[in-house]
Design a protein around this nucleic acid. Structure first.
Lengths: 340, 340
DNA sequence: ATTAGCAGTCGAAGATATTGAGTGCTAATG
DNA sequence: CATTAGCACTCAATATCTTCGACTGCTAAT
């Protein structure tokens, strides 16, 4: 349906719009990209591209702006994702090689780096604990009424929590707990820790319920920890021309502050693949002027965290996705390296 | 210099401006507050208040707006801070009594509650480790090449970190470390852990430097941890009329995103006292349109965290400070309770 | 299929007028 | 002398109108 030239012109229009944030006119296309055809020809093609839903006009006599459908074709078929320079590659390598002490930390470093290179706002969340296998579980007595509970999973994820008691706990009790939890839970998925465990332990261990209850309570919290979004470069977005619109700026802050929408999006991505959400493809109102690109870092079915970029629909997809592709590759390599 | 009536009128003007965000005219004052004098009288007083620097005009024929000096007099001398309702007190009690597992968590709960009640953006930082006395220090072996180091201080603060090694570590080594660190550091201020310790341990323990080095490195990081600002209700600020100004909105996002300025302010407050920063009293450009109210929670000279409210200069100081006063009192009580 | 050419559209920007919410000042008042 | 009525004056905000020019779409010629 779209011949080669129309696809080329569509790409040029999107490129130009991403660059200038201004509606693109036929004259500009001729001047900058298509020196051998006349603006009238471009206009004809534009009219057809508009009829097909790839372009929009802001008013009758304005230039064209890509529609969500236009962006979609653009990112899916018209772009190559090798828009990354040697300097950028070097910079990323440097950053990611600075040894992080945990997966979460590495994810944060990657998130920050991504924002630095792309100049967009980036977000990330840590790994979902669900599905992870308990490799080690330990309780450490701190003082006489405080315990630290630590879980290590097969992906190297470490989670710890403080548990406070109203009565003294002895070293022997802690040893019993350690022995019991390890024999029962090692090799089990982490979500095995739940309320049903409480009764079971109570029967088996004859340990005071005043001790078991807070332990299970806190350990459970570890699993479905309300997820924290790590945010980098929120102010960068405010430099973009679209943020001149107060309405839009407000939506943006709302989005980042209420978190739910972002969590939703960060959580729905599929493993190992870059997901692209373009404006009104999503039905959330606040999101309609933004695009989000996410990448879920994982091994097998185990989640290691998700990183996202949020920017205006007119985002530099080529750069963003190229850089993200590289970072994701690098993260996987590093993980293999560390766990081989 | 200012007679009673002028002070009264100043307070009324600030009250009114805080309420409406519009320059206040003499007519409004007469209508709403001073039914027994004429607007001409109020105008005369206003003129003098302006000459004395407490009021400003946005243009020759506009109403008056409080100056920073005006706000200062207002908060220092004209306000009573008992502007808190029974419902609010009850709500705060409820929130703060939900048992938190650490001081940091309690501070966060207080921060969130403060934002909920005042409808302003709130921020907080956790306790400074400096000055705290080590009560317990423990290393726990996780797997064969990973250690968790845990420090408990006299204020009940718990900090932990993961330490990774390139070689295996044995249980005996960990025991030696535990024994050594505890005998040497218990009762010492936390900042005793520094590079000089590394050599000392190396000599005393004859333990591999490959093990000691990463430990000290990580433990040091624990102390001067780059501080994380906890932020609540950033979007609430965007509902305020002053945020119609893009310039101001941008400054706000910058402020919260770059963190340094906020950290600076949160760190300079004096213990146990509510600090009020009003707009251009501060010389930071980004801050000139905002006021910040902070409270540093502490016992003795030990810091337990700082909470702040950031809003427009036209902030509801009475409400904000009243609520903060109550929360601070409550936090102290709770702490006494838990540590008695 | 392409293109030159031209009429038509409409937002952006600038000029001008209008309005009214304020003030400050003066002169009168108790 | 403090207070006040009254009035001239100021100026931001708003509305109205004009102009300008960057676009398009269409037609007719190539």
């Amino acid at each position: 349906m779209l011949d080669e030239r129309k696809r080329k012109i569509l790409k040029e229009i999107v490129d130009e719009y991403i660059d200038t944030a201004e509606p693109v006119s036929s004259a500009i296309i001729v001047e900058k990209y298509e020196n051998n055809i006349s603006s009238a020809t471009v206009r004809n093609d534009m009219a057809e591209l508009e009829k097909a839903g790839y372009l929009e006009k802001t008013h009758t006599s304005s230039g064209r702006v890509p529609s969500a459908k236009g962006y979609r074709l653009y990112v899916d078929e018209l772009l190559k994702y090798d828009n990354i320079s040697l300097e950028e590659i070097k910079y990323i390598q440097e950053k990611l090689e600075s040894k992080a002490n945990s997966i979460e930390e590495l994810t944060k470093i990657a998130t920050t780096t991504l924002s630095e290179i792309t100049h967009y706002t980036t977000v990330s969340i840590g790994p979902k604990t669900t599905g992870q296998i308990i490799e080690e579980i330990k309780f450490v007595l701190l003082g006489s009424r405080m315990l630290m509970g630590i879980i290590v999973t097969d992906t190297g994820l470490v989670r710890e929590t403080i548990i406070k008691f109203d009565e003294d706990v002895t070293e022997e009790q802690v040893e019993t707990l350690n022995y019991f939890f390890n024999t029962k839970l090692k090799g089990e998925p982490i979500e095995r820790i739940d309320a049903s465990l409480e009764q079971y332990i109570f029967r088996e261990l004859k340990c005071s319920i005043n001790i078991i209850k807070p332990i299970i309570e806190q350990m459970k919290k570890l699993i479905d920890d309300e997820e924290k979004i790590y945010l980098e470069g929120a102010n960068k977005s405010f430099e973009l021309p679209e943020f001149k619109s107060l309405e839009l700026a407000k939506n943006f802050v709302n989005l980042l502050d209420t978190k739910e929408v972002m969590l939703d999006i960060l959580n729905t991505g599929f493993a190992e693949d870059i997901q692209i959400y373009i404006g009104d493809e999503n039905d959330n109102e606040d999101l309609k002027d933004f695009s989000i690109v996410t990448f879920k870092h994982s091994v097998g079915d185990k989640d290691l965290g998700t990183i996202g970029i949020i920017g205006p629909r007119r985002m530099n997809y080529s750069k963003v996705i190229s850089v993200m592709k590289y970072i994701s590759k690098k993260l996987n390599e590093d993980f293999e390296q560390n766990n081989k």
